[in-house]
Nucleic acid binder design. Structure first.
Length: 716
DNA sequence: CTGGGGACGGGGCCC
DNA sequence: AGGGCCCCGTCCCCA
């Protein structure tokens, strides 16, 4: 009777469904990072299968597994087992582990991983299979200390191997869950020889064949987030707060952190093949790059084949966490349609570099308008942006933050047959030859204006040989202006900032785009620069390549480490000229200076007095009054020097004037003050905002609480 | 409780 | 692309 009450195959069906959902990323709520591979799964399923994973998923959505203990390929097998109850047969397992088919030791790697992850069923299965092949006994650790398996035949690494570091990014303060105890792999297990390097060097081997497209073993796909500390200087990841690590014995007598240089990319080269093939089948040639004879690569639209596009594609197949996955799941159906929805008119989507087409040129006078860009500081997360009026995407377009994979393909859609567009003038041409001929005309014009070298650059931009955006069109006509314009001839049409080189200008112009071209594939947040995005990704993945030799603390950036090292060295190079306080970090000095700015009239005045010799400066008693403009200038100069402000455009001074004259109640006085003020602020090179702030402070100081001394501000 | 300092994370952006 | 710096914000500790 019981049989009739049990739906036959129910559990099987359930598993099938779950696995199906996993491969689609549907309802996946956890990402597991193994080396440079990402896997998505369901917390419930993991928790039901592995005590260890259970302890991890409780706290985090993003798990970082120690790839020394489990390789991406092996973890994939493990995940398959979790979701299917089946372990790929020997040949498959070997293939996945990038060893010769039939090489049974790969089972050892799986066994080691299963032990490490505390999946008893898989452990039993592996043992059973190994015994069947008569290998199990040979594989057992000779040391007898629990008989674990080192996954890749790597010699045991003592403590670390015995206490595998599965750590979740953003670990809770309580730290990561306790390491597994049962069957903890340890000790030298040379017989088990699946090495990651082999995996990734294997190319079009069986491993590649085994990887279904949606389950690539290295989904980070060329987006190298794994900068590593110099050899030996990087202790294993630790939970935040755990700083007091003993120096690593294997640390070389390093030259010290000061000698740190951002190390070269340390990941083993990604497997050339599984992905290459994918790519080869992907994008059609980009008319603006391919045929043109190879110019500089230029800003890559999201999803370009090299680099993040692989990740995007991977994400496409296995969408992101939670609702993102859901959204993507819906989106997945007809991406090209959405591309068309979105991409119709590049002019309507200035932020849309993806097509590789140029937006209409932005000459001075054809500004997009101040609102066009969204100040960089006005950044909103993707979720906030969704549906905003700024978003050029029509309803039903792409989920913000998730680029349409097809955008990578450079499909020009709105130019009809005239796919070859001249950036400066926006004209389209049906062939690159015609475009080149057209560009020749530009070159001649530009040569007449700027000279040959710059003209060539303009032409390159026009022909799309260089980065497709900005091109020469943004350049202010080398106009014979002041020295500033000579030094920084490339001016942004949207905000009048100027730059020394066109690349920087193009980079800057992205800050005005409505759509940020580089989305984080994990959280969807978008960035104007790829570097910022990859840096952001490192924070997601908990990758902190820069380790402090003194305390072991790790950082995502070299600069942070340099900053941090001052704590150990006691160096405090930033000194407050007002109170003499010293700071190890410049930003803390800045904060400190703000404190002076708020209540700092007496302090600043005292400092000025300390400098001595300034006219009208009060004595230490603070009773004196500053003369304007000297007093203001002195304070401004002082503060500016302290803030180490960079020299900027003289144009800033002009803008500054507009912002500062409100200090001067009397228009006549204001007028009289303009010239020295302009001269001084130009000399300081203050940015408008900063100068206004500084001068505001100074004016307040000079005016005194009642503002009466304002009358004395007129230059004598 | 509050203000200030120390330390650090993240993002923007110029070089 | 990567380095470097700036800015903002936060957390923690301490007086």
């Amino acid at each position: 009777m019981l049989d009739t009450m049990e739906a036959p195959g129910h559990s099987r069906q359930l598993l099938l469904q779950l696995n199906n959902q996993r491969t689609k990323g549907f309802l996946c709520d956890v990402i597991i990072v193994v080396q440079n591979a990402l896997f998505r799964a369901h917390k419930n399923v993991l928790a039901a299968s592995s005590a260890y994973l259970k302890s991890l998923v409780v706290h985090d959505n993003l798990l970082n597994l120690d790839h020394d203990m489990v390789s991406p390929a092996v973890f994939r097998l493990v995940l398959d087992f979790i979701y299917t109850g089946r372990l790929a047969d020997g040949a498959e397992a070997a293939a996945a582990a990038a060893v010769a088919p039939g090489a049974e030791p790969s089972l050892g790697a799986v066994l080691a991983a299963a032990s490490y992850l505390q999946i008893p069923d898989l452990v039993a299965l592996c043992k059973k299979r190994l015994k069947r092949h008569g290998k199990y006994c040979h594989l057992r650790g000779g040391g007898g200390g629990g008989g674990g398996y080192a996954p890749y035949g790597r010699p045991g690494r003592g403590l670390r191997a015995a206490t595998p570091v599965i750590q979740a990014c953003y670990s809770s303060p309580a730290g990561p869950p306790p390491p597994p105890t049962a069957e903890a792999p340890s000790g030298p297990e040379a017989a088990v020889n699946t090495h990651c390097a082999e995996l990734y060097a294997s190319g079009p081997g069986p491993a590649a064949a085994l990887c279904a497209p949606e389950r690539r073993c290295s989904p980070l796909c060329g987006l190298d987030l794994s900068k590593k500390s110099p050899p030996g200087s990087a202790p294993p990841e630790r939970p935040p707060g755990e700083r007091e690590l003993p120096p690593r014995p294997d640390s070389p007598p390093s030259a010290g952190p000061a000698a740190y240089k951002e190390p070269p990319l340390a990941l083993p080269p990604l497997p050339p093949l599984p992905f290459q093939k994918l790519e080869e089948a992907g994008p059609p040639p980009d008319p603006f790059r391919g045929g043109g004879g190879g110019g500089s690569p230029g800003p890559e639209p999201p999803g370009r084949p090299d680099g993040p596009s692989l990740l995007y594609r991977w994400m496409k197949h296995e969408p992101g966490l939670g609702s993102y996955g859901d959204e993507l799941g819906r989106e997945r159906g007809s991406p090209s349609e959405r591309c068309e929805e979105r991409g119709g008119d590049p002019a309507a989507s200035p932020g849309g570099p993806p097509l590789g087409l140029a937006p209409p040129p932005r000459y001075p006078g054809s500004l997009d308008g101040p609102g066009a860009g969204g100040d960089g500081d006005d950044y909103k997360s993707s979720s906030e942006e969704t549906g905003s009026s700024e978003d050029p995407s029509p309803p039903g377009g792409h989920l913000e933050g998730y680029p349409c994979p097809h955008l990578a393909y450079g499909e020009p859609e709105s130019f009809g047959d005239n796919l070859y567009v001249c950036i400066p003038c926006g004209k389209g041409f049906p062939s690159s030859e015609q475009l080149n001929a057209h560009v020749e005309a530009h070159v001649e014009e530009e040569e007449a204006l700027y000279g040959r070298a710059e003209a060539a650059e303009v032409a390159a931009g026009a022909a799309g040989l260089g980065p497709p955006f900005g091109g020469g069109g943004d350049k202010v006509a080398g106009a014979p202006g002041g020295l500033g314009e000579l030094l920084r001839p490339y001016r942004c049409a949207s905000c009048d900032k100027s730059y020394k080189d066109p690349a920087t200008l193009r980079q800057h112009e992205k800050t005005h785009w409505l759509t940020r071209p580089y989305p984080c594939t994990i959280c969807g947040k978008k960035f104007t620069q790829r570097g910022t995005m990859t840096r952001h990704m490192r924070s997601h993945l908990g990758l902190k390549p820069f380790a402090c030799d003194a305390c072991g603390m790790r950082f995502t950036r070299q600069y942070r480490l340099t900053e941090h090292m001052r704590i150990h060295s006691g160096e405090k190079p930033y000194e407050c000229q007002v109170c003499g306080g010293k700071f190890a970090q410049q930003r803390n000095l800045i904060s400190h200076m703000k404190m002076h700015a708020v209540g700092g009239a007496a302090g600043a005045a005292g400092a000025l007095a300390g400098l001595g010799g300034l006219p009208g400066v009060p004595g230490p008693d603070g009773k004196g009054k500053l003369d304007f403009p000297e007093g203001v200038f002195a304070v401004a100069r002082l503060t500016a020097e302290q803030l180490s402000l960079k020299q900027q455009d003289k144009a800033a001074a002009a803008e500054l004037l507009a912002q500062t004259t409100h200090f001067l109640h009397d228009p006549k006085v204001a007028l009289e003050s303009l010239y020295p003020l302009a001269k001084f602020t130009a000399e300081l090179g203050l940015s408008p905002d900063k100068a206004a702030e500084v001068l505001s402070q100074g004016a307040h100081l000079a005016a005194g609480p009642d503002g009466r001394t304002i009358d004395r501000f007129s230059p004598t």
